[in-house]
């Protein structure tokens, strides 16, 4: 080590290359993790249900998990593009190795482990976002799509009908969704739920709104001429206000 020549030995140079790539990898990973924490969930906006909260944390966690992978690919790509670039047509060939068993094996193992992690995370998230609403005595709302309006009716409240959705805060809701004509898709944006409205059958989705406010309902399946206008609002109100709204519209609680 004491005798350092001006031209580094090839072995030394290779070690330096790996070290530089490792630093680049680390730097990019940090940037991507910061991006993962701040950007995707923020773009999705404040969640209005535990479901949406779970989805946003999934976006964050998956982004963080993917950060080192993306960073590694980009680090090697960027490094090779600058440091291994030849000026014009190369006059010599690169080293002839045709693979590296341990590297390939670890790559496959790590990506398999990541894949298993994604799967377990997703299954756990599925369970946590679907079961609560089905467990307790939920509010039932029938949702009907037709070109190009939504209709909501409350079968247990005297079939009150409305073109705006009213929901009491913190009470689980089950939506029975159907269509009168073509396929629509019932999407409460800030609650993170969506299910197609199909003609002839009833599909279900459920959620527990946990935030007061007015939220967006949009159709998420192209359904003809005025698909873009097929939107309405979901009002999440206090239970007392909900009861008042039901009575006002001729229903009973």
């Amino acid at each position: 080590m004491s005798a350092e020549s001006i031209v580094a030995s090839p072995k030394r140079r290779r070690r330096d290359e790996v070290r530089h790539i490792a630093w680049l990898w680390l730097g990019l990973t940090i940037l991507l993790v910061l991006f993962s924490i701040w950007v995707p969930a923020r773009l999705m906006g404040p969640p209005a249900s535990p479901t949406m909260r779970a989805v946003e944390s999934t976006m964050t966690v998956f982004s963080i998990a993917a950060s080192p992978v993306a960073a590694l690919v980009w680090a090697i790509a960027i490094y090779s593009l600058f440091r291994w670039k030849s000026r014009g047509e190369p006059t010599e060939d690169g080293p002839p190795f045709r693979g590296n068993g341990p590297v390939t094996a670890s790559w496959a193992i790590v990506s398999s482990v990541l894949c298993v992690f994604l799967l377990i995370w997703g299954l756990a998230e599925m369970t946590s976002t679907t079961s609560p609403a089905e467990a307790s005595n939920p509010l039932v709302v029938n949702v009907t799509g037709q070109q190009w309006v939504w209709t909501f009716s409350y079968p247990d409240q005297g079939d009150v009908e409305s073109d705006q959705l009213y929901l009491p805060l913190n009470r689980p809701v089950v939506f029975h969704v159907s269509s009168r004509d073509v396929i629509h898709s019932f999407w409460v944006v800030q609650m993170g739920i969506k299910v197609d409205a199909n003609p002839g059958v009833t599909t279900k989705t459920s959620v527990t709104p946990d935030k007061l406010g007015v939220f967006d309902i949009r159709c998420a399946e192209l359904c003809g001429l005025r698909h873009a206008d097929m939107e309405t609002s979901a009002h999440v109100v206090n239970p007392a206000d909900f009861a008042a709204w039901i009575t006002q519209n001729g229903g009973h609680t």
Binding site: W84, S111, S112
Partner: peptide, 26 residues
Amino acid sequence: TEMISVPTGLLFLVILGTVWRGRIWT
């Protein structure tokens, strides 16, 4: 669906391993 990410990931390795210490002609 998530299993597809494993063979797809290998394709990235193949390309990265190929440029590794190559003489890159851009």
